[in-house]
């Protein structure tokens, strides 16, 4: 019966290794993609505002200048950048929230395969 138990646990840990690896792989790709998107959009928005000279308005901060600055800014691009940042922070939040669970899984997998070696 011990052989059967060993076989069961071998299969379970193989499944878990695949699951954990694909979890990290997919999330890394999404994280890098969102990071690049955020970088590109923020660069483009900054360039547009520079060309328009909109940053000059911020030298004298009053309500009128802020309103003009907002009207001159590319709103669609700002909205996309905002959404990208929301997804990015959500991913970071999930990583922090599941940190303990992921760490325990990695430790369990390490301990299991270390016993086998």
């Amino acid at each position: 019966m011990k052989r059967l138990e060993k076989n069961i646990l071998d299969k379970i840990f193989k499944i878990e290794v695949k699951r954990t690896a694909s979890y990290f792989f997919i999330r890394s790709i999404i994280f890098v993609a969102l990071g690049f998107a955020a970088l590109i959009f923020s660069t483009v928005i900054t360039e547009i505002l520079k060309e328009q000279g909109s940053f000059d308005l911020l030298e004298f901060l009053d309500w009128n200048n802020i309103v003009v600055f907002y009207e001159e800014s590319p709103k669609e691009l700002l909205l996309i950048l905002f959404l990208v940042m929301i997804f990015l922070f959500y991913l970071i939040f999930l990583l922090i929230k599941n940190y303990g669970k992921i760490k325990n899984k990695l430790v369990s997998i390490y301990k299991f395969y270390k016993k086998r070696v």
Partner: peptide, 10 residues
Amino acid sequence: GEIDYYSLLV
């Protein structure tokens, strides 16, 4: 995440 405890159920 402490999946090594599954061996106890097995």
